[in-house]
Computed example of a mutant assay.
Amino acid sequence: MKYLLLLNCLVIPVINVYPASAHSVKIAGDVGGTLHIEPNDNPRAGEPTQAWFALTRKGGRVIPLAQCNCRLAVYAQPYAPGEPPLLEPSLNPVAAERYQGIPGAEIVFPKPGIYQLQLNGKPTSGATFKPFNLKFEVTVAAGTSNNPQDLQDVNSGVAQGESRLPLLAIALPILGFVGILFVVLQNMRGRRE
Rank of each mutant, 00 (worst) to 15 (best):
V108I: 12
A22Y: 15
V74A: 03
L91D: 04
P112E: 07
L175H: 03
P85I: 07
A95N: 15
S156V: 10
D41M: 09
A76I: 03
F136S: 08
C68E: 02
Q50W: 07
I63Y: 03
N120R: 09
K111S: 09
I12Y: 00
L55W: 00
P148N: 05
A105G: 05
N147I: 05
R189T: 01
R57N: 13
A20T: 12
I180S: 01
V62E: 09
C70T: 01
G176P: 01
G101Y: 07
K111W: 04
Q149G: 07
L134I: 08
Q149R: 14
L87R: 07
T56W: 06
I102A: 02
P78Q: 08
V94T: 14
R191M: 12
V140M: 04
N8Q: 11
G121S: 04
R61W: 09
T139W: 02
A45S: 11
A142P: 05
R44G: 10
L175Y: 06
T124N: 09
F109K: 00
F53C: 05
V140P: 05
A96R: 11
F109P: 00
L7I: 02
N155K: 04
L175E: 00
D150H: 12
P131N: 04
W52I: 02
S145H: 04
T56H: 08
N69A: 14
P103K: 00
P166D: 11
M188Q: 14
T128Q: 15
L4D: 08
A73E: 15
Q118C: 08
V31I: 05
A171W: 01
G32A: 10
P148E: 15
E83D: 13
L91R: 01
P81L: 08
G59A: 02
V138H: 01
A80F: 05
R98Q: 13
R189M: 07
E162D: 10
P39K: 02
G176Q: 00
N155V: 07
L172M: 14
N146Y: 06
L175A: 08
V108G: 01
G32Y: 03
L4M: 10
P166E: 09
C68N: 04
Y99F: 14
I102K: 00
V31W: 00
E193F: 10
Q50L: 15
N187A: 08
L5E: 12
P123K: 06
P64N: 02
M1I: 05
P64Q: 05
A171S: 11
K111Q: 11
N133Q: 15
G59S: 04
L5R: 02
N155I: 11
K26T: 08
L4N: 07
E193I: 07
V138Y: 00
E88Q: 11
L5A: 09
V17F: 00
L151Y: 15
S125E: 15
E137R: 12
S163A: 10
Q152K: 10
S125Y: 03
